[in-house]
Design a protein around this nucleic acid. Sequence first.
DNA 1: AGATAAACGAGACGGTACGTCACGTCTTAGG
DNA 2: CCTAAGACGTGACGTACCGTCTCGTTTATCT
Lengths: 211, 211, 211, 211
Amino acid sequence: MGESDSLPQATEPTTEDAEKRRVGPKRSEASTNAVLVAAYTELSEHGWRGFSVDRVAKNAKASKQTIYRWWKSAACLAVDAALATLAEKPITPASNDVRDRISALIEPMLIAVRTGDGAHAWRGALLAAADDQDAGEIFRAWFSESVKIPLRHILAEQALKGTLRRDWDIDLATELLFGPVWHRLIAMRGPVPEVYSRRLVESVLKALSST
Amino acid sequence: MGESDSLPQATEPTTEDAEKRRVGPKRSEASTNAVLVAAYTELSEHGWRGFSVDRVAKNAKASKQTIYRWWKSAACLAVDAALATLAEKPITPASNDVRDRISALIEPMLIAVRTGDGAHAWRGALLAAADDQDAGEIFRAWFSESVKIPLRHILAEQALKGTLRRDWDIDLATELLFGPVWHRLIAMRGPVPEVYSRRLVESVLKALSST
Amino acid sequence: MGESDSLPQATEPTTEDAEKRRVGPKRSEASTNAVLVAAYTELSEHGWRGFSVDRVAKNAKASKQTIYRWWKSAACLAVDAALATLAEKPITPASNDVRDRISALIEPMLIAVRTGDGAHAWRGALLAAADDQDAGEIFRAWFSESVKIPLRHILAEQALKGTLRRDWDIDLATELLFGPVWHRLIAMRGPVPEVYSRRLVESVLKALSST
Amino acid sequence: MGESDSLPQATEPTTEDAEKRRVGPKRSEASTNAVLVAAYTELSEHGWRGFSVDRVAKNAKASKQTIYRWWKSAACLAVDAALATLAEKPITPASNDVRDRISALIEPMLIAVRTGDGAHAWRGALLAAADDQDAGEIFRAWFSESVKIPLRHILAEQALKGTLRRDWDIDLATELLFGPVWHRLIAMRGPVPEVYSRRLVESVLKALSST
DNA sequence: AGATAAACGAGACGGTACGTCACGTCTTAGG
DNA sequence: CCTAAGACGTGACGTACCGTCTCGTTTATCT
């Protein structure tokens, strides 16, 4: 979601002026949050196939109309609900070391996925992203912006320093970083252990190292 | 599912004699196959969330009762339908080389996933396995038997020869082998390129190499 | 059902104000009528055991949910569908004569039952009322309000005039009026002849006459 | 069904010889009885709409095939099951008095209907007879043979003696005898009181009396 | 201070699919 | 050839959600 500082999914007006001149009440932030929270709970309790918009609406004391006004589909809502939990807690690298900087990129999700509820909810969100075109795009937009691009910067820096091989590949890097997580979360349906972060970073650096 | 020579999901009788002495009609093989084929088509056309047992039954000219008699849930059927396509075409290694032997383990699925239909169907099956407890177990049983255990044999052999580090880890190996596939298939919702097999094998061997 | 002027089965609000203040769409009258008509047709074409809510929904272009929202069960719908055909055509007595006044009570149903479709539909509705607790109550509530109570008034009047015996019994009277109809309709599975009305009335008056 | 002394519904062979020459086992009486008993229980527990042949077969430890071989439909079985309970206990008139003789005709059913189970089962059987063409014929055949014809004899005798009006009508008589029973059993869904028999007989005799 | 218009809760609506149950027919093995 | 057991295609059950819609109320801006 490329909307770090605004409500999710809002259809941006062509010009800001047009928006300002609009009459009537604005989008209710309280309602939006209640829906996101309810959706996250729904995901963690019923998974993706059992995800019910009716139930989300009831639990959030919102009307279905309101949900469908702001989210294209249930899948988009599911992905948004999971991503919304990350936005609140970005992590700043412990040091300028390349390991710490990469860790800071993947840690937020790894932490979220550590709890039982979090694993269920994130698994659900990922399934939603895999099932639905639009939801997939939301997920990949977030992934690109929050992981891929920053990672590319870091790796490019390292390449300049000569610590990485010349033909380093950003896709290979992201696959090595996240593939194992998907394997544990989706294919093995299990939790993701705590020590994982360090291991993943090492794995990437080793694969791309110039030696 | 590790039942290369029997119908899927059949509840094994305690003794074979007991089974043989049972009266009444036997499970219809024609119906079973029609259902598996229809389920595979359904998966590739509608994905996992859109997977409809009604439609599978209609297309297979089978009754829903028959489906639910032999499969615990739609998810189990989805996973079975995908696995059934593998059972028919096992691959024998081109040589005794370790690379070829590992390749032979992962090639069947990689080939299946290469086509558009195959990618959709397998993505769906994987989502089903992630969504549903029972379906997950079917998938992991297949994975364990067809990939993990054979792979362990191969790696153990190599370790004895001294070409692998002593503390090689089967989980790390499978993650490196399949993680990238899941990343492409699920998270990126894209196809899996042809050259992949060799790259995955190299990645594993390098990570576990003794040097 | 004693709701001559409202939609069937509506759960009456405690106060009318509460109902009026309710938000959201109201019950669709068009849908309700279409369902009642389709149910009547279904009953006359397939009888009670063959009565299919699916088919009623399809023919009424309504959803099953809508049917089950407003009717407790298929049986209740069947009874309502038959009763609804009576509500439209009440009969006013030809004269103030006691024979005409009693006739006017039973004529609507007798007329309805005279046609082939009517006989089938009413037989079906009666079977539904006999099969199902709730449907039975709807039927008996209608019977009580539309037949029993008015009949009691008429007979009480006559008793005061001395033309009826003192120990006249309302149950005996209704049994004599309707029992023969049920016998023909249910037990004999046949039509109810035209001359019936007069004969039934005579039979009751004779049985209760003071002489 | 005119089979007071044979198994119900058996398709009579054209000649007895043909039947005697038939090879293979004969119809199992034990199975037949078990099915009739189970059907009666089923009727009294689930009513007519809830009547399940599957359940009858299971409870009677019979196969469905066996049931469908000997009964045309579930409705026929239901009627047969109810009638079978009467066959065992015919009633001989207490005296030669016309009242006692008529009573003896209707008492068996009235007694059967007195208990809770009996009322449910008989109501179910009657609904089956009303729902289904074939079952209706079985019921009416029994009714004709066991009630209508004997009653006609009795009334004809009385007419000769001059105690009945000349234009007595057998249909009127049976309607007056049974109509009230159907009203109580079907329309009112209630029990039939004990004193009923005498009242019904009086009602008929009074209606047909010559005075 | 209205009038206008959008957002909101509630929930009815036509649909599709669910997983279960029963139907009546058919197949198998045993007596 | 009858029987018990039970698999099969068909189709209805009553429930749950879908995404759209219609209400009446509440807010916010614009005349």
